[in-house]
Each structure stands twice: as C-alpha cells, then as structure tokens.
Design a protein around this nucleic acid. Structure first.
Lengths: 351, 351
DNA sequence: CCATATATGCTCGAAACGAGCATATTCGGG
DNA sequence: CCCGAATATGCTCGTTTCGAGCATATATGG
C-alpha cells in the first residue's frame, strides 16, 4: 500500500509523453481549484451562495466556496467539491454539474504573476432555497448584484444605456489590437450582439460573453485589479456590479449562462423548487432565472402537457384569489422521454 | 468571522509558488493533460484524428493528440492544446472548444494506481477533412470504429441487439451496489434509456452516457484494463468498438455528444465543409454526424430559410442528374441572429 | 432522343405556438 | 349577505412551423 503511495507521487515513468521533466524545464506545481456556484431562488430572487462578502468594503470581495482538489482525499472532482462546500458552508449539495475549466494568465488576484498557479474548475449546483439556518457560513446574494445588466424582469435595465453602451462604443472606436484572428468579430459588433444594442435582440444566455466583453474592455473591476492593459482607472467610474475574488465572477457568469440554457431543455427547475408548488410559483422561478415574463396560460399548457408535473390533490389558499392547485415534479418523466424540459415561450418582446 | 476559512483559501503566491505542502499533507504533483478530439468528415464518414493506432494489435491502442499543460509556455489552455496538436500531428487547429475535465480515480492506464496523477481536459476541434498530406503524423479514423453502436445511418446497428442488449440486461439483474444514491436510476432503466431498448426512443446525443454505461457494466475494454471490479474477462468477449489509451475514448464520446448537440443550434457544420458546397453535400455531412436520414426538401427549406447560406452562382455538375447549385456559408448570420443553427427534422422514425 | 437520376420548387394537412377571452373561486369590505 | 378585486384555470382561434409528398427542371448515359 505504501508502495502505491510512493509510486503515485511521480508521473508514470515509462514512455512519458506525460513525464514533464524530460525535455521541458521544470514544471511548476499546478494546483487545481474546485469552485462552486451554488444557485437557489429565494422569494423570486435568484441567489448564489458566497462566502466572504462585504458590499460596502472594496477590499473584501465575495468569493465562491472553493478549495483545492486533492486526489488523495477526493475520489472524484465532484466529491472533492462537495467536501469543500460542506466544510465551508455546511451545505450538503444536491444537483451539481461541471461548468468549465479556466486557466488564463493574469485572471487571478496576484498582480505581477505571469503564470497561474491555479487552474479553476467551476461547478454549477442547484438547490432549494434554505434559510440562513442550515448554513454554518456564507450568505445568499442575488446574482443580479454581480450582474445588474442581466436583470430584465422590469424591462431593460437602465444600466445598459447609461453606463455600458457609451463606454463600449468608446472602446469599440479604439483600434483593435493585432491579436485579432481571421474570423474574429469586430469590437462594435461584439458589443452590439452581446448587449442587444441598436435594435439587436437580447439573448439571455450570453451572460458569460457579456462579462468577458466588459472585462476585456476594462470595465469590470477585476480587469483593473488584474492590471489589465486598457482598464479604466478605479476612480470616477460607475461600478458595474459587485466584483469577486480571483475569477469567481467569471465562473458565476458561466453558471448563469448554463442555468438559463439548461432550464429550457432539461427539468432542472425542479431542483430549485420545494416538493409541492403551484404552477405560478414554478413560473415565477423560471422568470427569476430567465428574465422576461411568460404567458401564464401557455406556460401552464406546456408544463402540464409535457407531463412534467402531477397534481397532489391539495390546493394552496391565500393566494389573493381562487386557490391554486398544488403540483409535484413527476420524476418518472426522466424514465419516459429521452430529453424532457420546460420549454419556454415569451410574450411580445419588450426590447 | 472568516478565520476558519483562512486555512483553506487559495494559497498566496508568497508561500506557495512552488511549495504546496503547507497545511495539508504533501500535495501530489498534479499534471494537467490537454487532449484534442479533432473531428472532420471525409467521404461522408465522420473521422477523428488519432495518433498511434494499430487496429489489429491489442497492446497498441489509439490515442488522441495530447500533452501536458505548462503555464510557463502556454498562455491559455487552448493555446497549449494547439501547440501540442501542431507538434504531434502538424495540424493547425481552427475551431476548438473545451469539453470537460476528467479526473476519476483509476481511469488511466496505470493499473494499481489509486489516485490520478493527471487531470484530463478534453477539447473538441472541428476541421475540414484534409488528406494525409498536411499531416506529419497521425491518421483519420472513423469515429464509428470506436463506437459502432452509434452508427444508425443504415438503420439500427446490429451490435446493439446482438452484443449489447443481452449483456446489459444481465448486468441489470445483478444487485446494484449500495453506492446508489437517493434519486439514482435503476440499472435496467439506464440501459433502456441509453440504448433505446424496449421501444424507448433513441437519443443520438447520449453518446457519453452510453459509453459510461458500458464502462460501468464492464463491457468496454478499458474497464478490464483499469482493473475495474466486475469487468468481463478479456477472453471470449465480442469487442465493443476499438479501445483507446487512458480515458481518451471517454473524451471522444464527449466530443461526439457535443458535436451532435451543437450542430443543431449553432452553425458549426460549416467548420467541416469546404468553402463551397451543395446543399446535399451539407445534408450528407449532417447525416454523417447525426445518423438518421433527413428529408431533403425540408432540410433545404430550413437551411435556406435561416439565411445560413448564399448561392455562389456556380453549379456543380456530374452529380448524376441536374446540376446542383453551389452555396457558401454566410458568416454574416453570426452578426444578425443571436443564436443561428441548423435545425433538423427527421423523417418517420425507423427504429 | 429517351430513360434515369438528381436537383429544386411548391402544396397541404397536422401540430405547435402566441395571444386573448371566458369562467371559477376565494377574500375583503360594504 | 353581496359585490368587487384578484388570482386561478379552461378554452378558442388565427398564425407559424413541421412533416410529408407531388411536381417540375436539367443534367448524364446509352
């Protein structure tokens, strides 16, 4: 057993396309960070679990639950993630899926660092909204605090026209660096497509693209922190959402993108719901995630027609009107249809 | 308030540039492997670029182009991948996207190893079919050689009913290990849903799920190689596709899943096409990827209606009948619609 | 010059979608 | 007790999209 332990320490000796010490210089010790974007919906507000936030202080930015992957202790990446989350917040994760692995140079909080010590693996977890009880640490914060331009529930957010559009247009005017490749899209076009400028349709799934654009344009606080070339000065600059530590806001953006996309073709909303719910509560949860308001009667038709829910027989009163039937998720659909989901249809676009 | 976290926070550069062994026991030197599933379509056959294959020898299994990520040399994960591919095959990658990061214990080729030294990041690359010229190394091999059960172009593959179904049924009979969690799906149901048994619809996107199921059931050669509990003996066993080194077949399965899914909602087919093509050639390429035959006239209507292509004005003769108009991809759609793609409609199912 | 094969255009019924009208129940206040 | 407001739920209807097939155009090969 100890043989195994000692043998495992070094890369497999034989053949060694894998062994780095051969024809390359010494490989730096790479750490792998596991990061959890844990999402819930509480009072029709989509929230993420963050650990160390202080909205008023500029030094102490929020951070997602995270920790290094240690293959000794963790059988899989996901189990490692669960352990860290349990450890740091007390939360026992349910549904979780891997998002993306990031390792870009200079996207961590250590200025002057040329090479990342860490590769970040982001995970998305969906859970029911639990109160602050059940948590040993951390707090739920609306994800729109980090991404105010994503909140279209009350129409187009003002921050786009007021703070984002003019500065992106200015950025688009500057000459694009020569790094642009053959088929790359011009800055102005990217801004227009990402943020739905000049009458272009808004695509609620492009959360990550939008954040990356703001970062590249130097408009996200993290860009200045990372010492990014061209970042606007810290002073006299309207804050575009709360920043986070390291690349955690990028991971959260990826999580929102994935959630918004997946909610439309897999029954993942139900991970966010209590066991019993009314169809309107379900709709409100979907709307909290996606933004635009849906047509109530058609939403009902779709959800019921897809066999995603079944009535419990009970009703919920005190809704302000006629009592609403309670439903529960029909887990059996997972065994019936190959790819069930909550399709979504929007009312007349209010761009 | 966050003292309890300080021990687990990302190590600061001062203390850990090269010394991870602080508050945890010795952290093993983790390597990060970049792996490329490079896909093309050649003569209506979907192919992947593999490096060291010998279909007849059992010892020398195929391997995807890969190499370790070195943050000193590589600015990003993707640029590292491109460098390795260039190095190993001579191919200059075009379109590439990240797939998934794998690190499960025991899924590498070193038996007896309890913890992985390597974390594998898989990438999907799409490219035009280039002949063996332009390659310094490696060869294109049909992806259906690794996954024969995925080839539905000539109806349901016989291998499912003959070699897969009976053995999966037998596996489903065995008691499920206690590791099954609350909402986990029974073995029999998983087999039925994955492989479309007992009249269940076939979902061509579940390529990874199917391979993982075969692996878990011990029916993939890799399972025996990894010393997996319950794997069938090597002898007297029909081969279920060519195995690959390490977890490369799993990465290729992920690549096929992603390709099949993405081709339906993003214009990625055109990465596989020459500059000019007929609509039927486009259709044949889609069919090579997805399997079932499409309705020719409707496919044409969809593609043209979506503004994805424009006629070049030229025609292609010697098609065996009336000459076919040549088209080219309209790159401008990327600037117009937020999420263009080749939607696909299938003729009456021939399950 | 015709048979054949493929390319392309068009139509038609079915299903899905988007929007709005109508009815059912409850609650709170005269 | 009745009425109006508010919400839940049911249904209709025109439009669009989808699935399928028929019809026509234009090559090639004998």
């Amino acid at each position: 057993m100890n043989m195994e332990l000692s043998g495992r320490r070094k890369p497999t000796p034989e053949k060694s396309q894998l062994a780095p010490e051969d024809d390359h210089e010494l490989e730096p010790s790479l750490g792998i960070g596991l990061n959890a974007a844990i999402v819930a919906v509480s009072d029709n507000e989509p929230v993420a679990l963050v650990v160390r936030g202080d909205p008023d202080s500029i030094g102490a930015t929020d951070v997602l639950p995270f920790g290094p992957f240690n293959p000794r202790e963790h059988r899989t990446l996901e189990s490692g993630l669960r352990a860290w989350v349990q450890d740091q917040t007390g939360l026992d994760l349910g549904y979780a899926e891997q998002l993306y692995t990031f390792a870009d140079r200079g996207r961590h909080a250590t200025p002057g660092d040329v090479a990342p010590n860490y590769v970040s693996i982001g995970y998305l977890a969906l859970t029911q909204a639990v109160g602050h009880h059940g948590l040993t640490n951390g707090l739920w914060r609306s994800w729109y605090q980090y991404f105010p331009w994503e909140d279209w529930r009350r129409g187009r957010p003002e921050i786009i026209a007021r703070d984002i559009e003019p500065r992106l247009k200015a950025w688009a005017e500057k000459p694009t660096p020569t790094t642009s490749t053959q088929h790359s899209i011009a800055r102005g076009d990217r801004a227009r497509i990402c943020f739905g400028l000049d009458g272009t349709a808004w695509d609620e799934e492009k959360v990550l693209e939008r954040f990356e654009l703001l970062y590249e344009a130097g408009l996200a606080d993290e860009a200045a922190r990372d010492g990014r070339n061209g970042a606007e000065e810290w002073t006299d600059r309207p804050k575009l959402g709360l920043p986070m530590q390291a690349d955690h806001r990028r991971i959260l953006a990826t999580a929102i993108s994935r959630t918004r996309a997946k909610i439309k073709y897999r029954p993942v909303v139900f991970e966010l719901m209590p066991d019993e719910f009314t169809l309107y509560e379900l709709q409100k949860t979907v709307e909290a995630i996606l933004g635009p308001h849906l047509h109530k009667q058609n939403f009902r038709r779709l959800v019921e027609g897809a066999g995603l829910v079944e009535p419990t027989g009970e009703v919920k009163t005190r809704t302000g009107g006629r009592p609403a039937k309670l439903f529960r998720f029909r887990r059996e659909v997972l065994l019936e249809r190959p790819a069930p989901g909550v399709r979504v249809s929007a009312p007349p676009s209010r761009s």
